[in-house]
Amino acid sequence: MTDDTLLSARGLNLRFGAIPALVDVAVDLWPGEVLAIVGESGSGKTTLLNVLSGRLRPDDGVVWYRDPSGRLHDVHAMPAPKLRALHRSDWGFVQQDPRSALRMGVSAGGNVGERLMAQGLRHYGSIREQAIDWLRQVEIDAARVDDMPRTFSGGMLQRLQIARTLVTHPRLVFMDEPTGGLDVSVQARLLDLIRSLVARLNIAAVLVTHDLAVARLLAHRIVVMQRGVVVEAGLTDQVLDDPQHAYTQLLVSSVLQA
């Protein structure tokens, strides 16, 4: 890996029985950069996301992560407590279904404040203040800070999950289909929000999506996967407008034009 990558993977291989989920995959990510992983269902994109984030161990290969002090860590050789601490501080994970990521029986403020409390913050007033600030940043009315997530709409829940993830100012966020399952109008708003937050806070992100339009609007670079193989990678608009690989050409030409 070069001296300044935030995350770097080499030679990732993983099989689920007879099915190759990852075949010799390499990925680099630089600070502040958004990388989209695209491909159809079963192409291995979520598997790659889970391996990059240390949630799933590859059969082979290595994932390097550079911490804020510049030291390199082999993600899959990290002790569990360190990896979990990393997931609570410098990293974040945004899931497709916010209901499985949020505590549905805990108020919006409590949900946003949890990572702060996990980091040892013990001042109620300050935790609440930061929670309110983050609700504003994700365009949720501050008056809803004490409301339960079950009273929120799907789009609001996803924004709440984003606030909960970003409250510790992570430098790297993993996102698994963050706009999946939402109405088109809600999707647009969320896309705009993610894009502006990522740009303003200089967050690096690995984004899994099957929606090429989402990749185009959010990602600097794109990785196209087919049956566990990265068949094409490069600048987002170049890959989408001038696809070289047969599979990418098929993918791009299969998109419905609105």
Binding site: V106, S107, G113, A118
Partner: peptide, 10 residues
């Protein structure tokens, strides 16, 4: 133990 503090927060 962050989750326990979430309960106190609530």
């Amino acid at each position: 133990y962050g989750a326990m503090h979430v309960r106190l927060y609530e």
